[in-house]
Computed example of a mutant assay.
Amino acid sequence: MNITVYGADWCPDCRRSKELLLRTQTEFTWVDTDQDADGKALIGRLQGGEPHIPTIIFEDGSFLVEPSDQELAAKLGVSPPPTS
């Protein structure tokens, strides 16, 4: 599965989504929108305005914006992490 995660290291939601991908051994490409103006512009166009992170784009062209762990797990077809 080809997944690209657009986000920033300072973003707690981005770190949470990356952790879920790593924990489920899902390969992905990371694009730091603080360092990549083209990446930031791309997600802004997808969202029709100001870009929100994390934005996760999947191989089929679908994408999630600021997904919960449950939403991301459902898209990946894996069990969601336990809620605390």
Rank of each mutant, 00 (worst) to 15 (best):
I53G: 08
D32I: 00
E19H: 08
Q25N: 15
K75P: 01
I3V: 07
Q35A: 14
A73K: 01
T83Q: 14
E19T: 11
W30Q: 10
F58H: 00
T83E: 14
M1P: 07
S62M: 01
R23N: 14
Q35P: 00
I57T: 13
V78C: 05
P51S: 08
N2I: 14
P82W: 01
E19M: 08
L64H: 11
E71P: 12
K75S: 03
E66G: 00
P67G: 09
P80V: 07
F28L: 07
L22S: 15
C11M: 07
G61F: 09
A37W: 06
Q25S: 13
G39A: 02
L76W: 03
F63H: 10
I3F: 07
G39D: 01
I43K: 04
L46S: 00
E59L: 07
L72H: 00
I43S: 03
F63A: 01
P67V: 11
T33H: 12
F58Y: 05
L76F: 06
S79L: 12
F28W: 08
L72E: 02
A74D: 15
K40L: 12
Q47G: 08
P51Q: 07
P12K: 02
T29M: 05
E59A: 14
F63N: 03
D32Y: 11
H52K: 15
G7W: 02
T24H: 08
L76G: 01
W10R: 03
L21H: 09
A41W: 02
D38K: 09
A8P: 01
Q47Y: 01
L72M: 03
M1W: 04
R45G: 12
V78K: 06
P81R: 04
R16G: 08
P80T: 11
P54E: 04
G44T: 04
F58I: 11
P82C: 04
P80D: 03
R16F: 09
F58N: 00
A8I: 11
N2G: 07
L42N: 05
Y6R: 06
T24L: 02
E71V: 10
R45S: 13
E66V: 04
I57A: 10
R15S: 12
G7F: 01
C14S: 14
F58P: 00
T83H: 11
A8W: 01
L72A: 01
K40P: 05
P12T: 02
V65K: 05
G7N: 05
P80Q: 10
L20Q: 10
K40D: 14
P81V: 06
Q47A: 04
D69M: 14
A41I: 02
L72W: 00
S84K: 13
E66D: 10
D9G: 10
R16E: 14
F28Y: 14
P82N: 03
A8H: 00
I56E: 00
F28H: 05
R15Q: 14
F28A: 10
S17T: 12
Q70Y: 10
D9S: 12
A73Q: 02
D32F: 02
G48T: 08
L72I: 04
D36S: 02
Y6L: 07
I53M: 05
L21P: 08
L46K: 07
Y6K: 06
S84R: 15
P12V: 00
M1K: 12
I56M: 13
G61I: 03
A74Y: 05
T55K: 06
G77M: 05
M1I: 12
E66F: 06
L42D: 09
T83D: 11
